[in-house]
Structure formats: structure tokens, C-alpha cells
Amino acid sequence: MHRVLRTTAFALSLFLLPVIAFAAPAQYQLRVDGLACPFCAYGIEKELNRTDGVESIRIDINAGTVTVTMAEGATMTEAEAARIVEDAGFTLGGFEEVRAQASTKPE
């Protein structure tokens, strides 16, 4: 009986893993040129937090990057990121989609 349950649970987990991975929120790394001081960088935090679908952001002022985590199902295009960064008074120097939660990735 226990063996049947274990086998069923294992089969179910194999089925669910891709679903979990698919449901993980999108995450983007923006390289923001012109980002020189924390006080100025607040503008980019404000502009991103006004944007629909943005769940959280992390600013690395010394690397000049902003990591944006989207709400489940929401995405951001490079053109949208460029407009947001421009409205904050900077220039988008690079745009890269990254994995949101490595632990949810299937092996």
C-alpha cells in the first residue's frame, strides 16, 4: 500500500514540477546607464512600482542594475523597460530575462 502511495506521489510530482516552473514569476535584469547615486535611483523605484505587474524590485547601485520581479503571469518587454527607465531620467543599457526562482526549476 505504502509503495503504491509513494509511486503515485512521485508520479504526481513529476507531473507538477513543470507546472510549478511555468507558474514562477518572470524576472528581468535591467542595466541602467546613468545610475550614480541612491537618491537619484529612487525615481526608478517609483516609476517601476507604478507599473502594472511589477511585484518587487532590487537596485544594485554599484553594479548599475535593477532586478525586477513580476507578479505571476505578468511580463515586461524591453520597450516597456526602456520607457520606464527613460521616465526616471536614465537610459536602458541592457535588458535580460532571468529565472525567478531557481529552486522551482525542473532538473
Binding site: 537619484c40 525615481g43 531620467g89
Partner: peptide, 19 residues
């Protein structure tokens, strides 16, 4: 002034859109 501009003279900084 915006950002880290001078205190006794003008700076070229402007505040972000809608700020």
C-alpha cells in the same frame, strides 16, 4: 536642485516624470 546638485548655485538635474 535635484539629486546631488550644488546648494548655492543651480544644477542641471530635473526630477523624474510625475515626481
Amino acid at each position: 536642485a535635484r539629486a546631488h546638485g550644488p546648494l548655492f548655485s543651480p544644477a542641471p538635474e530635473t526630477i523624474f516624470k510625475g515626481g
